[in-house]
Design a protein around this nucleic acid. Structure first.
Lengths: 204, 204
DNA sequence: AACTTTGTTAACCAAATGGTTAAACTATAT
DNA sequence: ATATAGTTTAACCATTTGGTTAACAAAGTT
């Protein structure tokens, strides 16, 4: 086995590919740009990943593997809904700060090619709503929560947490806030979003 | 002035360009595909719109001009917040049914090029949050609403209404629903989203 | 040291793509 | 009917882009 340099070329490529694909999408990304960013010859991209599509898929599945655990936290945990909502909204924002492009990237590329998710759904680690559903139904039955379908609650939680990042340029313009002020709005949301949801769904 | 056919070529082009750009984005769109869809020669695209960028901008500004009035309805109207929330959630979903690609298209392309919104903000018809802000502050002061910043409320309203469409493939997978079932969830949201918001923000 | 396998590079290639051009066509004005 | 100005087309062009190739370099194997 010949390894010329101490650096792992394959990993360098994937790292550069993440940056470029997540910033520009499949259509906007250029193989040459990825090679340049990785500081290697373009032919190496094909040596390790065959073609653009496969390199893209490596980036996509990796991105998804980072997002999935975040969602499983709210779907599969045993704590009461209220606690899960509070934890999720706070954790999710921390996640976005570490990986700001990921949710946007996934949403954008799935819209371009919706069938892509079928492959992901086969994976046993794909987030599943069943447990969350039982939990919500149970808390509704016990009178802890107002009547609401688990699916709708889940969509609402996702919406309130995800959209402020996905539609950031638009919302910045509409709310007439600069970068700094918008960031403060997001910071405040770490707790306010959870309060907003809890107020809406809790009885009493 | 010579007009060969009764059909207006310029309009045919714009129509085809809308379809292609909104489905595939700036990067994914192909001038030839637009020409084919319009049933005209590719050179006509450049004759009427000079180049891809300008044709794209024509499509984008038109798309935005359709979205803006929807938002002005909630921002500039005089009715109480509760009524505005109810009207908006119902109207917005009707809007999406007519123009399913538009919000997604705008969000996606603004992320690709955030500076693009600066041009739009100059336009005096750009939606402005000031009036909405005064209204929310006033209703909070009167004790009709719980304390909440107008910006946060606006973001929440947008999030709950927009994300279910923008992230449709993802949410369909997570909620484990097919096309039909997901559509029913969306249908139910016409009233449920408003209820969700009102429950959260109204005192009493 | 010779051989083999793996890794790397520069040069190259074919197809796709945005854009141009020159000629042809059509309707209208003179 | 002829000139004129706007409209349309087919062919063409330069560049970009994903992908390939052949030669070469490094490290391990014998």
């Amino acid at each position: 086995m010949a390894r010329k340099k101490d650096e792992n070329t394959e990993a360098l490529i994937l790292e550069a590919a993440k940056t470029v694909f997540q910033a520009k999408g499949m259509d906007g990304a250029r193989m040459q740009e990825i090679a340049d960013k990785a500081g290697i010859n373009k032919a190496m991209l094909h040596y390790y990943y065959r073609n653009k599509q496969l390199l893209f898929e490596a980036v996509f599945t990796h991105a998804f593997s980072l997002l999935a655990p975040q969602l499983k936290a709210i779907l599969n945990d045993d704590s009461p809904i209220e606690e899960k909502v509070r934890n999720f909204t706070s954790d999710y924002i921390s996640f976005i700060i570490d990986y700001p492009y990921i949710p946007n990237f996934i949403i954008q590329e799935l819209n371009r090619n919706p069938d892509f998710i079928l492959k992901l759904k086969d994976n046993p680690s794909f987030p599943n709503i069943d447990k969350f559903k039982k939990q919500v139904d149970e808390e509704v039955k016990q009178g802890i929560l107002r009547p609401i379908r688990a699916e709708q609650l889940f969509i609402n939680i996702m919406a309130l947490n995800v959209l402020p990042f996905v539609a950031k340029p638009l919302l910045k313009a509409f709310t007439n806030t600069g970068e700094e002020a918008y960031h403060q709005l997001l910071e405040a949301r770490k707790t306010e979003v959870a309060d907003f949801i809890i107020h809406s769904i809790k009885t009493s």
